Structure formats: C-alpha cells, structure tokens
Simulated scan of single mutants.
Amino acid sequence: MQSQTLSDASKQAYMRGKRVLEINPRHPIIKELRERVVKDPEDASVKQTAHLMYQTALMESGFMLTDPKDFASRIYDSVKSSLDISPDAVVEEEEEVEEVEPEAEMKESAKDAEDSELKDEL
C-alpha cells in the first residue's frame, strides 16, 4: 500500500498494531506503590516513582519520550534518594590543575633518571 501512487501515510495508521501498556497488579513494585498511595495519597516520592515507571514502560514499548531531560532528571533523583543524598546536593567545582605537556614530562623523568645514575656512579 505504501508504494501506491496516491498512498497517504496518515491513512495507513490503522494497519499498524496498537501498543498497549499493561500493568501487572501482582508485581511487588505495583503492590507496594498501591499500599503507599492508600496510606498517603499526596506522597511526592510515590508519585515520582510511578511517573518514572510509566516513562520507562513507554520507552520499553518503543515510544519516544516527549521530554527525555525530565526522564533523566527523575532517574538522577531516584538514585540520589536510594543513596540518601540530599536532593539539593550540588556538583563540586573541579580544581584547575596546570597540565604538563607529555613531552616536557618525559624530558624531566629522563633527566631525573640520569641524575640518579650519576649519583650512583659517584
């Protein structure tokens, strides 16, 4: 059908299989999430975990995420939480270190080796 002269890609959408997201209510993660939602429906960490699982399931099913940066941010937040790192923790600045050219470094080490050999001979 795609090779026909007057084919229209939008009309061919009905031929593609529809993707279905299924949730296994017996899975331990789903059971735990449900219990936590029942205890505290406003718990932000439960909402974040559920959203992260939803985005992961979409990716796993072949869908493209509308905001991959949001997904990455949620992953980092989840890792921080599991490692008990403050959500407000910032990345430390890297110290500026003067780089020595490899050639100059090799000359220095060769000179040091010669000096030590001379001392041994004396």
Rank of each mutant, 00 (worst) to 15 (best):
K69C: 12
I29C: 11
P41R: 09
L122R: 06
E96Y: 12
K119H: 07
E42F: 13
A57E: 10
H27I: 09
M1Y: 08
P102C: 02
M59W: 04
K119Q: 12
P87I: 00
P87V: 01
P25H: 12
I30P: 00
E35F: 10
E93G: 04
V97F: 02
I29M: 11
E105G: 05
S86R: 03
D70F: 08
E101S: 13
L33T: 10
L83E: 15
S3L: 14
L33R: 09
V37K: 01
M1N: 08
M106A: 15
S10I: 14
S109K: 15
R19E: 06
V20H: 13
Q2I: 07
D77N: 15
F71C: 00
A13P: 02
G17T: 07
A104T: 09
K119R: 15
V91S: 09
R34K: 13
A104D: 10
M1Q: 09
T56Q: 11
S7F: 06
E108S: 12
Q2H: 10
S45I: 14
L118W: 05
I75R: 01
R34S: 13
Q12T: 13
H27W: 10
E92A: 11
A9K: 14
S61Y: 02
M59T: 03
V91C: 09
E92S: 11
E114C: 00
M53T: 11
L6V: 05
M53R: 10
L118T: 03
D77W: 05
V100Q: 13
E121L: 15
